[in-house]
Computed example of a mutant assay.
Amino acid sequence: MNQMAPYAQDVRDEDLCNLRIDLAAAFRICAQMNWHESVGNHFSAAVSADGKSFLMNRKWQHFASIRASDLLLLGATDNSVMQGSDAPDASAWAVHGTIHRLRPDVRVVLHAHTPYATALSTLKDPSLKPLDNNTARFWGDVGIDLGFGGIADAAEEGERLADALGQNSCLMMGNHGVTVTAPTVALAFEKLYFFEKAAQTMVLAYSTGQPLNVLSDDVAQKTAEGWIAYNGMAQEHFSHLKRQLDRVDPSYRD
């Protein structure tokens, strides 16, 4: 079991417990969807108002085995955490720690190498074109980073990615993968879910070799705004997936 570090938190103990459970559930669900990367990739969630105290998985633990109690409580300005036996890997620290430190409004950060989003990230133009409801959902809300220089394990890499994210909630990491952010784990998971579906649509549309029928900016904007009324889907979808986990293996709650 992870020993919690003495970092300040602004959430109540009960809320922190629920946050741990939700984040652990997100790992398990993503493992079921084959969105894990061996024992790599990281998810995190802020527990303090300034974002400098956050939960994250330690290095090299498979998504399918993560429990609520396994999540580390880290301080974004405390580099000594990298010296611990349960330290996260350097790339996770550089990306998640920096984003939480520079964007305190970002509460949950999910980074993954989902198949279609990653395939799209390797294109010269990795942007999501508004082609349908799912692709237009992300209109005007995706930053793009084209500065890939290998594994992002240096502080300047994290700062560049945070800058590329800007005020968007999603980041297409060129030649790398995708990072999504949201106020809650359920909303972040839903964003990752639909981003992968949108990327799949893009890749399949490109594969036909036919010209894309791209929506106008006005229609894309209207569609993106129309999704706001459906935000409630996220919690219902995530709750359903958690119930499925509970029937099969509820150990993520431990």
Rank of each mutant, 00 (worst) to 15 (best):
L16E: 13
L16H: 04
L16Y: 10
L16C: 04
L16G: 03
L16Q: 07
C17S: 14
C17W: 12
C17P: 00
C17I: 10
C17H: 14
N18M: 15
N18D: 14
N18Q: 15
R20E: 10
R20G: 06
R20P: 04
R20C: 09
I21L: 10
I21K: 13
I21H: 12
I21S: 03
I21N: 09
D22G: 05
D22R: 10
D22Q: 11
L23V: 02
A24E: 08
A24V: 05
A24R: 05
A25S: 11
A25V: 08
A25C: 09
A25I: 05
A26F: 05
A26P: 03
F27G: 00
F27C: 03
I29D: 02
I29C: 04
I29W: 04
I29Q: 00
I29P: 01
C30V: 01
C30Y: 00
C30I: 00
C30N: 12
A31L: 06
A31F: 04
A31E: 08
A31T: 03
Q32F: 09
Q32L: 14
M33W: 15
N34A: 13
N34R: 15
N34I: 05
N34Q: 15
N34F: 11
N34K: 14
W35P: 01
W35G: 00
W35L: 06
W35S: 00
W35Y: 12
W35D: 01
E37Q: 12
G40A: 15
G40F: 15
N41F: 10
N41Q: 12
N41C: 14
H42N: 12
H42Y: 10
H42R: 09
F43M: 13
F43L: 13
S44Y: 09
S44F: 07
A45Q: 08
A45H: 08
A45I: 02
A45K: 03
A45V: 07
A45G: 07
A45P: 05
A46Q: 03
A46E: 03
A46W: 08
V47F: 06
V47P: 01
V47K: 02
V47E: 01
V47Y: 02
S48Y: 08
S48D: 10
S48V: 06
A49H: 11
A49Q: 15
D50N: 12
D50I: 05
D50L: 02
D50C: 09
G51L: 04
G51H: 01
G51W: 00
G51I: 04
K52W: 01
K52P: 01
S53R: 06
S53H: 09
F54A: 08
F54Q: 04
F54H: 03
F54L: 07
F54M: 08
L55P: 03
L55R: 02
L55N: 04
M56P: 00
M56Q: 01
M56S: 08
M56L: 11
M56R: 01
N57C: 09
N57W: 00
R58D: 11
K59F: 15
K59P: 00
W60T: 12
W60F: 15
Q61W: 03
Q61P: 00
Q61G: 06
H62V: 08
H62F: 05
H62P: 10
F63L: 02
F63Q: 04
F63S: 00
F63N: 03
F63Y: 14
A64S: 14
A64V: 10
S65Y: 13
S65N: 15
S65G: 11
I66Q: 03
I66H: 03
R67S: 11
R67W: 06
R67F: 06
A68C: 09
A68R: 06
